[in-house]
Design a protein around this nucleic acid. Structure first.
Length: 597
DNA sequence: CTAGGGTTAG
């Protein structure tokens, strides 16, 4: 796994010498150690280092710390670090970066402080390492503190320092992006990366116009610059602008093509996505993944499945990203067959041990209604994480097994897993399905009191649904009014749905007045209201709503159900008579209904 | 330090 630098660098092939001095061989091993991901090999080299009494050497220690960190073995990394009585700035930097990479931000900062206490001066490498640790959280004040530090000691000469500062600022919300722009404007020297980094920040913050302005001002654009803006337009659904930019690009690479295909797929324009896919010169796994997932999300099982086979035939081997993406897409539209095909392949590879892949499999089976399969994979899984539990709880809850879901929740606690905000969405959903209103309210209170999870708007939505479905509309309405977060259209819509079930026009009209204030474009709410008026015989009300829908040019798309038969997904709506054998189908439904009675 | 696909969420 470790290749010598001689092999890699020489243009003339060298015959392997008959004898290499052990010292020379050892040096070669050390020089590549920080890139090694094989833990047992590192341990072996570590033993050799101890034998050669090199464990006090700061340079050797730095290599080892980096290697152990790459294998996520921080305890070993720290034990090596602690062997060095007076660590150099370089060694401190390596340890800070190691903590940052293993998402232990507070330890990274503790190491930085320790470095200062020991009188070791930070250098230009220290700050990019430290800034990497900030990425997990979006603490603007922390980044400002580091900024002040850099200002004080002046490390601007190394362009890496301001560039990482811009990048980290951009990850701290909209205020951070403003700070990043200010810093960028004040820079005397900028390179392409500086420009690309600030433009990325603006694009991610949705400031497309400002991003475009800077892009136009850029002295030299590389392919990355073009791709950043292209992605901005694609993610915003502005495919016409993206297409125009794509046409103007002096050079395009796999990323440019993939970005376009992804944009068209997201926009539901699979034909356009396919045209570009067929046209693109050299494809790697990413465009294949995008196009297959795109078809799968749209329920186009035949196309997705055919392309999946073609991808394998072309000699490409799916990676973790491909597998997860296709499974998620299959879950979304219930493509059990495609999901099972991917599963069969996973079983033959190392991915069957991957937590991420297994989670995606469980979710796929659960969403396709195969709860038994989901459960058996879940129960056999050795490396469960919080997401595994959340998926399984949610899966059971959504399919009407509220009690089972709650039982799983208590098992989760017994096995020592700390629930998070998503867990409680599943739990509250389970209570709704099991009709356990008061238990649901208990869980809702308990999540903040015992787990310090502050309820988000989604949690309020669940509780309002819980109360509303049971007809406790007054309580639900009161909760909306006293919730600390601004109720959004989903909250009001949930409440309106409950009014519809219980034909409560009084609360409903109150809700509608709030909905209109929010100026939502969700046509579903209007048709809900019109249904309420219709059932209470208020035909004037119905007419008013219909008129309002017409005025705002809202059309309610009817809800579709789908069923997978053979290799096709069949979609149908309520009172659908489009099928050639529609009469026979309805006859059968009636017969089945009678049988059930 | 910068670009494309990636598990849970009414």
């Amino acid at each position: 796994m470790l290749t010598s630098s001689a092999e890699a660098g020489m243009s003339v092939p060298v015959r392997t010498p008959r004898w290499v001095s052990p010292r020379r061989m050892f040096e070669q091993k050390l020089s590549d150690l920080h890139r090694c991901t094989n833990l047992s090999h590192i341990k072996q080299v570590h033993a050799q280092i101890l034998k050669a009494s090199l464990h006090g050497d700061a340079h050797v220690a730095a290599k080892l710390v980096a290697a152990f960190s790459l294998c996520r073995h921080m305890a070993l990394a720290v034990s090596v670090f602690d062997q060095i009585p007076e660590p150099t700035a370089h060694l401190y930097n390596i340890l800070i970066r190691a903590y940052a990479q293993n998402s232990e931000a507070s330890r990274a900062f503790a190491t930085f402080l320790q470095m200062q206490r020991n009188g070791v001066f930070a250098d230009n490498f220290t700050y990019p390492c430290l800034l990497r640790a900030c990425c997990g959280q979006t603490s603007l004040s922390l980044v400002q503190m580091i900024h002040a530090h850099i200002e004080k000691f002046g490390f601007w000469a190394d362009i890496f320092v301001p560039n990482s500062l811009i990048d980290t600022y951009c990850k701290c919300g909209s205020l951070g992006v403003r700070a990043a722009r200010k810093l960028f404007d004040s820079m005397a020297v900028r390179d392409t990366v500086s420009w690309n980094t600030i433009i990325t920040g603006l694009v991610k913050a949705g400031q497309l116009l400002e991003a475009r302005q800077l892009f136009d001002e850029m002295p030299e654009r590389d392919t990355i610059s073009w791709n950043i803006l292209l992605d901005g337009y694609a993610k915003a659904g502005e495919m016409n602008a993206a297409f125009e930019l794509f046409g103007e690009m002096p050079r395009r690479n796999v990323v440019s093509w993939s970005t376009m295909i992804s944009g068209y797929s997201e926009a539901g324009e699979m034909d356009m996505a396919r045209v570009l896919f067929d046209k693109m010169p050299a494809k790697n796994l990413v465009p294949w993944t995008i196009i297959i997932s795109g078809y799968a999300k749209k329920g186009m099982a035949k196309e997705a499945s055919q392309l999946y086979d073609q991808m394998e035939k072309s000699g490409l081997v799916p990676d973790e990203g491909t597998v997860i993406s296709i499974l998620a897409a299959s879950a979304e539209s219930g493509l059990l067959r495609l999901g099972m095909k991917v599963h069969a392949w996973v079983e033959r590879t190392k991915f069957k041990c991957s937590t991420l892949v297994t989670n995606a499999l469980i979710d796929m089976y659960a969403k396709c209604g195969r709860l038994d399969d989901a459960l058996s994979i879940f129960n056999l899984m050795t490396k469960k994480d919080i997401v595994s539990w959340n998926i399984m709880i949610q899966g059971l809850a959504m399919h009407g097994n509220g009690e089972k879901a709650l039982h799983l929740f208590s098992r989760m606690e017994e096995e020592g897993f700390e629930p998070d905000g998503v867990t409680f969405i599943g739990v509250l959903c389970a209570c709704t399905h099991a009709g356990l209103v008061d238990e649901g309210l208990d869980y809702f209170n308990y999540m903040e009191r015992d787990f310090r999870i502050v309820p988000q708007v989604e949690h309020y939505g669940c509780v309002i649904d819980l109360l509303g479905r049971r007809g406790r509309l007054k309580e639900a309405f009161a909760l909306v009014q006293r919730m600390p977060i601004e109720p959004n259209a989903i909250i009001w819509g949930t409440l309106l749905g409950a009014c519809r079930i219980h034909n409560n026009t009084d609360v409903a009209s109150e809700v509608v007045s709030h909905l209109i204030k929010l100026d939502t474009s969700d046509s579903g709410n209007f048709s809900l209201m019109s249904n309420i008026h219709a059932t209470t015989g208020d035909w004037d009300g119905v007419a008013n709503i219909r008129r309002e829908m017409k005025n705002t040019r809202l059309q309610k798309p009817s809800g579709e159900s789908s069923v997978e038969l053979g290799n096709e997904v069949h979609k149908f709506t309520v009172f659908d008579t489009s099928h050639p054998e529609s009469d026979g189908i309805y006859q059968m439904i009636t017969t089945l209904g009678l049988e059930l009675e």
